[in-house]
Design a binder for these strands. Structure first.
Lengths: 363, 363
DNA sequence: TTGATCGAAGGAACCGGTTTCCAAAGTCTT
DNA sequence: AAGACTTTGGAAACCGGTTCCTTCGATCAA
């Protein structure tokens, strides 16, 4: 067996995978991950051959391949992901950027994406933008450079900027927003349709005065909801709509409970389930009965919506499916294929027990 | 200005950052990220100098540095993370492995870790092991090779195997379990103490018959809870403990509601908050009043625990803090420092409204 | 004026893989 | 047995950075 010394230019006196820990600490030697050169030397072949064997190239003789595999096994050799990525120009990692990790909505998307990506040997990098527009852009660029693709749930960044960025971010899939002038693939939810379904439901129960607990003003999906609500209020005679600035979190809804009562409305349309929960809880503390005194609806159908008391009437969106479809589209893009048409998911109205007939008022 | 051609061995006729898209597609050229060679050529310096400037080395003359920066700016140059990582031997990414991403407990840890890591310029890779022991090990190794360190919430892998793996996984921080014989840093929760607090609370309310809705049997933290409960039942005269195999998820608790009633116990100690919610909801559907007919406790204090009806009595554990501390320890390890002593977080009993006096039974 | 010292910047090795290109060896044909 | 074709596997370029080592020129002390 002829021992080659490729890749061992450093310590030629010693072919075992040992190396100085760092340039500073020259006293102690410790075992370090063996590299392709060590395996090649051990098997008596070139590094090229080791690479071929590790990647299952059919052009290497079976008995040689076996010898290489044995050597790799003996040394417990694992190819460096980094070096491999650099050479191949691909990392097998994709990134997800969400505004708020504490929102169960994004958690479910994260999960769906993670599982779909994992099924095809890809890992998921997660970053939270904390609703900060400036940071969101930098974060997106940064994350993109760590990975092969991006799923971007970025409701706040203005369209023009997104368009400018998109070249550097590609391949990218947008969540929950579309950029009209562009051909950026996006998966979104038809919030307007969901709101219309909710309003129709409430109207049929006799409600005529609705409060909308608004989400973040810059949020695209909030704007969509507001528009749908206003359109409905204009189209329906005798329909009163009150808007209260609120937020997207639990605490926001909780804090809004008194304001809701003050409006004398008979039903609350909350920005999302989290806000609805907060309001539910706040109203409960104030001794208000739901749905007898007031009805409440949410949006998203996060897992807990079924289990509150009373269970929450809400518009369900297929969060896992969103994650999965995001992966499918990203995967297509990464392979240079067309991502297919944008999907506009239709929310499904789930009528539970937080909505009931409008109470009859003594005027 | 002398134009060097370092890094441009490929297309020497053209110094602009253009390159063939791939080896197969030779017809179309498209703009590609410029590399350090392009910047060096544009600024008329060596690649080494560009590197120094990009990393803020003080040994570069100010006017030269300015020229390099201008060139980088003009080309919109961004150093390749990959190449940088390979050269530096560090990725600025850490991995988190959790058994179940749908558990809010882990979501909060994820969030805490992500934020702490981000604050020091690191990104987070997330992987879900789906409670599969074999996959958990492979996943951990895989994830580790993508990153500089690992936070491992892996309750099921046997201790010996974990010990064997630990060398390859280091630096690693364990969550929610300790491996006695090793010096693996770990952050855990004193589940026994939490259980004792819960039991004491229930006993003081007059409860004498408790059902424990057990979590996954292989789970280390479940074993700790069981042990604490049994110890309490042995130590307290007239204390009856019934154990029901259950699980860790919502649905598990929901399904167990009937079984709970059948035991005639006056209080339920659920494995965690999710299970408690499920049970709460199941009992509600069966027309059982909580806490009047039966008391329920959870564990973890996930965000929703405050907002259920009735709000859940539970043992609170500092999930964000767990994530943050995990980062601190990992960071210490990654810098070759000592991670400090293992921390055993003490749960805090939060008495809410899901527990009340034991009902007086007519025997 | 000369020798020593110091700072700045370039050359080249290196991180650890992949892949092209090519030479050598082996097989088949006539 | 010679020429043509097919495997097989090695050498070396390449991915895109970082950094050690060296050189060159300027400054400073003698």
């Amino acid at each position: 067996m002829s021992l080659k010394t490729d890749g061992l230019r450093h310590d030629e006196e010693d072919s075992s995978p040992l190396r100085r820990t760092s340039r500073r600490n020259t006293t102690r030697r410790e075992r370090v991950a063996p590299n392709i050169g060590h395996v090649a030397a051990a098997a008596g072949v070139s590094r090229a051959t080791v690479s071929r064997v590790m990647n299952g190239s059919p052009t290497v003789a079976p008995e040689l391949a076996a010898r290489v595999r044995a050597a790799a096994e003996a040394l417990n050799y694992q190819p460096s992901r980094l070096a491999r990525s650099l050479a191949l120009g691909r990392t097998s990692v994709v990134s997800l950027i969400v505004p708020d990790l504490s929102n169960p909505m994004f958690q479910d998307i994260l999960r769906g994406l993670s599982q779909a990506a994992a099924a095809q040997g890809h890992r998921l990098l997660v970053a939270e933008s904390n609703e900060n527009i400036q940071e969101e852009k930098i974060l997106a660029l940064e994350a993109r450079r760590h990975s092969d693709g991006l799923v971007l749930a970025s409701p706040r960044v203005p369209e023009e900027e997104l368009l400018t960025l998109s070249e550097q971010l590609a391949p990218v899939v947008l969540l929950n927003r579309e950029v009209p002038g562009s051909n950026l693939p996006s998966l979104s939810v038809d919030y307007a349709a969901g709101i219309r379904a909710i309003v129709t439901h409430l109207l049929s129960l006799g409600h005529r005065h609705l409060v909308y607990l608004a989400g973040p003003v810059a949020s695209a999906s909030n704007q969509e909801r507001v528009a749908a609500l206003r359109a409905a209020s204009v189209a329906t005679p005798g329909f009163t709509l009150t808007e209260i600035p609120c937020g997207s979190m639990f605490e926001d809804g909780h804090a809004a409970a008194r304001a809701v009562l003050a409006t004398k409305a008979t039903a609350v349309v909350a920005f999302n389930d989290m806000v609805a929960f907060g309001t539910l809880s706040g109203l409960h503390e104030l001794g208000v009965a739901v749905p007898d005194d007031i009805s409440i609806t949410g949006f998203d159908d996060i897992p807990f919506a079924r289990y509150t008391t009373p269970p929450l009437t809400t518009a369900s969106i297929p969060k896992n499916e969103l994650g999965k479809q995001a992966w499918d589209r990203l995967w297509a893009l990464m392979n240079g294929e067309s991502p297919g048409h944008n999907v506009h998911f239709q929310p499904r109205l789930l009528i539970r027990e937080s909505t009931g007939p409008a109470p009859t008022r003594h005027a």
